[in-house]
Amino acid sequence: MIVAQFTDGLVRYAQLVDYQGLPYIEALGNFQTPIDMNPSRWMRTNIRYEITEMVETIKSKVDFPDRQAVAVVEGKWFPHLFQKVDSELPLEDREKFLDWQFRETYDLAPDSAHIVHQRLSGHFIGSQLNYFSIAIPEEFRQAFSVGFDKAGLTLTRIELDAFAAADMLSYAGNMRHLERILLIGCEAVEYHMNLIEKGEIVGIADFTIGHNSEIGIDVLRGDWSDIDRIIIFLQTLLKGNPRRTSPVDHTYIYGRPLELDRWERLLKGPEVSLFNPAQAFHLREPKVRNSSQYTELLGTTSNLIRMRFNED
């Protein structure tokens, strides 16, 4: 099975095989692509051909053909929101309320997108239930399904990068349910940040790092009640101040090698570490360089392993 991750400017891929009953990652790699994955392009027809082209490139880089594929995409492409709802509401009304609140927030026209509400289990206060909601345009589903189909692969699932990273943390045994964990992913210019409490994602954020290690928050969704403390903590981390006090129990950092360089020399404290997901898998080439950048891709791969190789 092929797992492909699409980000702005870079495609990562992994090939998962079943070798004598063991999950085994046969190929792991990435390549750059000039194709613009801006969500406003889902409506255009040629995005399908461009996806086909990228999938064909992946196929040319693996040794034997595989029919099934799973994709990982960026959450920032879609409107998304953390919502609370009264647990006393019946299911049908609850969905209506969540739909209504989401459409009001984003001013979405009816039937313009499918809204999915994933109930979150960990963060549970009183009678309120927490949901993560996201709207997916039909054009996006069509573009990816047809794009993979034309390349001769069957796309079975599409997952979100933020949840894939948390899945990876869980699979590697680093998800401790009593802890408050910050997960930071470094892409080309942007940084993703997930806040995990009691084994559940409670906040998603995108930020950039400017001159003098100033952090600028672009997107903030969910429960970031102490975001000020987190920003100060990260800034002192970036400035190399050893006397830092962490507002979370542990911070894991992963991402592209170039962006990681600025963090790596600062990762000396016990509460901050570079996340290395490759050690949790059997790899064809065990010495993968910079396996950290494959965290989200391998997170989705770990989901497939759970589904297909679960002992239970």
């Binding site: 299911l91 979150l120 699932r157 989901n303």
Partner: peptide, 14 residues
């Protein structure tokens, strides 16, 4: 988790 390809409506806790 959420499958962006197929899922709609409310999903149970995971």
């Amino acid at each position: 988790r959420i499958d962006l390809l197929h899922d709609k409506g409310l999903l149970d806790a995971y």
